[in-house]
Amino acid sequence: MAAVAALYNEFQALGVEFLAISTDSRFVHKIWQEVELSKMVEGGVPFPMLSDPGGKIGAVYGVYDEAAGVDVRGRFIIDPDFVVRAVEVLVPEVGRNPRELRRQIQAFQHVRATGEVTPSGWEPGKPALKPGPDLVGRVWEVWKP
């Protein structure tokens, strides 16, 4: 949570809206912000923290752990047409990497803007591929791992 907040300016520059959601109540979210998150990152997290009591929303998104009664780490990238573009789900013990999240958003935005496709490990400024008959069997000429 705080790791994303630390990169928040960069995500804002990409036009990204963040929503965090757990089974905690909105009151607990407020107190967590006050007593802990605001000490990890100046001003605390700047995005809405949503409440999913009973995990009904998490269940629909396939991330509710009924035995533990919590939503596991599930991250969904949704495009401006309201279509889900990416899903990443982790067990609670391993945190996410906001830099990889940023790279994926940049890749999805590049694809949407250009119609090109981005090869493995693509970063902004690196060549992307123009899919079409001429590229079949010749990716090796333009891209190497």
């Binding site: 963040f18 959601i21 998104y61």
Partner: peptide, 8 residues
């Protein structure tokens, strides 16, 4: 663009 993050 929306990033929806569930967490435990």
């Amino acid at each position: 663009w929306i990033v929806l993050c569930f967490y435990p």
